[in-house]
Amino acid sequence: MRLAVVTVTLAAGTAGTDDYVETVLTVTIPAGATQGVVNLTIVDDNIDEATESLTAVGTATNATTSSPATVTILDDATDTPAITLGDVTVTEGTDPTAVIPVTLSNPSDEVVVVTVTLAAGTAGTDDYVETVLTVTIPAGATQGVVNLTIVDDNIDEATESLTAVGTATNATTSSPATVTILDDATDTPAITLGDVTVTEGTDPTAVIPVTLSNPSDEAVDVTVTLAAGTAGTDDYVETVLTVTIPAGATQGVVNLTIVDDNIDEATESLTAVGTATNATTSSPATVTILDDATDVPAITLGDVTVTEGTDPTAVIPVTLSNPSDEVVVVTVTLQQEQMIM
């Protein structure tokens, strides 16, 4: 009886030579025996793979060649790749898209199609284009990106954010990633105050228009500060004027009380400036106050009786019906009356 030296030859199938150590495998079966084994080293990689197989054929010089045997390699369950989405920060008006990185923890031997689902947070669907985002990561690769379109509006907004989650049929779902949207600095609204002209005695208030160049997503509290000009604080009621312009709106007014006196005055004016913590300060606006036409004073001369030889002068009283804010020079014209005897 003779011993049999069996050589086992391997043939790659769906399992390739990166899945096992390719080498010559032999086993010596002693004379009189019928059993032996060969040991094929399996490569433990981190690639996510389907079940794979190869074949093995045994030959010997003194035995009949075997039929192919199948070696089946089940994949390590821990090789299923995990999806990670990267956080990203963009500036509205500067960055038209948010480029969200999509990463697999390890490669797969088949393509991984990742679907990225968005969830509104403080950023709503008017801040970005809501759509299905997908990226195909090729077999063997681990990197990809999805592009989220950012809406460039003219609304002044606080920093906002939304979340994104990546899923795939052959990878583990990601934790939520955050997309942060910084607002366009040019969206800060500018305050404009309108010039206004009123007539004392006719208009009890000057209604000053307050306008924002563009809306804000939060209320804008505008404080209007007055500065006396030719009109002083006896011409209007000096007070703090404020108006709250609601989120999304651009218009408001403040009401300045005008003092109706009986003083004859020239046309006068004062200025008003609007400020807010979340808007740009306005240029000065002018409030013009026209005088009440009835304030023009009327002259009255008093009758007087004197005795010639006793009173060297006749003191004629000159009276204005109401004061003026400038001197009034009165010229008295005398007319001779004829006494009827």
Rank of each mutant, 00 (worst) to 15 (best):
T169Y: 11
V207I: 15
N154I: 13
T169E: 13
V129A: 09
P176W: 05
G201M: 09
T186C: 07
T178I: 11
G201T: 10
N154W: 12
T188M: 15
T163H: 00
E130K: 09
N170E: 11
P176T: 03
T199Q: 01
P189V: 03
A158Q: 13
Q143I: 13
T169D: 14
T197C: 11
V196M: 00
T134D: 09
T205Y: 15
V222G: 07
S161K: 03
T178W: 04
I191T: 06
Q143N: 15
T136P: 04
A206V: 02
L193V: 04
T186R: 08
A185V: 15
E157L: 11
G166S: 06
T172P: 09
A206M: 01
A185K: 12
E218F: 08
T169W: 10
N170G: 02
G201Y: 03
A190M: 12
A185L: 13
T134L: 08
D217C: 09
D187W: 01
P204T: 06
G166Q: 03
A177V: 08
E130A: 13
A206Q: 07
T188P: 09
L162K: 05
D203N: 14
I181N: 03
A164L: 05
V220C: 01
E218D: 14
T159N: 11
A190L: 07
A185H: 10
T205E: 14
V198N: 10
P215I: 00
D187T: 12
V220S: 02
V222N: 08
S216H: 04
A206W: 03
I181V: 14
E160R: 13
V179I: 15
